[in-house]
């Protein structure tokens, strides 16, 4: 594992009118790490994700990915730098089969344009073969290759989450953002997903994820960033975070009190 910095967020702020959804947040993600962002509801976690992936523009601050500033870049441009994501509220392409979803994920790896596809030039067939093979591999990686030819919308919730991950992986990114990957999964599905993520990390993938499920966070995160009311209140290893009084007051304490 190298110590190369993949993502660097510096003094990032976002305000919606008078509300500071994210305020002066700074942190780094190194290559090969799994970093978790936690915090109570409304702490600005999803906003942070949307800022990093370019879905919404930042009010101020810097974001660099692989040494390149990605402030002001469109989401598709950021994706082509090697950063893909999944969504808290699933965004599976319901109008396609499972494998087509994943093949769509390989978009930036392919070249076929509108004319070469319309005329079905010889290289298109080769490319299609390869992308299908690649998609099947990605599905195998998350364990739903047997569902490849089902309609995506017919999949149960947990499998749709895995499908989103397979689709994100198909772009061969170096960095994946997961927005509440465990939400709505039963304990068995969660454990399965944790294993999938751990395996991917072994192959050199870097993750940033937002999660409420503390068991998951503690078991797979190398580093945890804690947000509360848009501000970073702590950062550290799972052990450090679980004993941090500020965090317990803001987040864990409330959970335990229930």
């Amino acid at each position: 594992m190298t110590e190369e910095t993949l993502l660097k967020v510096e003094n990032l702020s976002k305000s919606f009118g008078g509300v500071n959804a994210v305020e002066n947040v700074s942190f780094e993600v190194k290559k090969g790490e799994i970093v978790a962002v936690i915090g109570p509801n409304g702490a600005g976690k999803t906003t942070l994700f949307n800022l990093v992936t370019g879905v919404i523009p930042a009010t101020s601050g810097k974001i660099t990915f692989k040494g390149v500033s990605i402030i002001g870049k469109r989401p598709y441009q950021i994706a082509s730098l090697g950063m893909t994501r999944t969504f808290q509220n699933l965004q599976v392409f319901n109008n396609m089969t499972v494998i087509e979803n994943v093949m769509t994920g390989s978009h930036i790896r392919l070249k076929t344009g509108i004319l070469s596809s319309g005329l079905r030039l010889p290289n298109v067939y080769k490319e299609e073969k390869e992308v299908m093979q690649k998609a099947l591999q990605c599905l195998e990686q998350v364990g739903i290759a047997d569902l490849a030819f089902e309609r995506a919308e017919t999949l149960p919730y947990g499998n749709q989450r895995l499908l989103e991950i397979a689709r994100a992986v198909a772009a061969e990114p170096s960095f994946i953002l997961l927005d509440e990957p465990m939400a709505g999964l039963n304990p068995q599905e969660s454990r399965n997903l944790v294993n999938v993520l751990k395996n991917m990390r072994k192959q050199g993938m870097t993750f940033l994820f937002v999660e409420h499920d503390m068991e998951t966070v503690m078991s797979i995160a190398d580093k945890i960033v804690v947000l509360d009311y848009g501000k970073k209140i702590a950062e550290g290893t799972p052990e450090e975070i679980s004993s941090n009084p500020k965090v317990i007051a803001a987040y864990l304490g409330e959970e335990e009190a229930i």
């Binding site: 879905v55 989401p75 965004q91 319901n94 994920g105 978009h107 989103e164 689709r167």
Partner: peptide, 12 residues
């Protein structure tokens, strides 16, 4: 057609 936000997120 399926999801514009997801479509952009994979680089389209």
């Amino acid at each position: 057609h399926g999801s514009e936000i997801a479509s952009e997120a994979i680089g389209i």
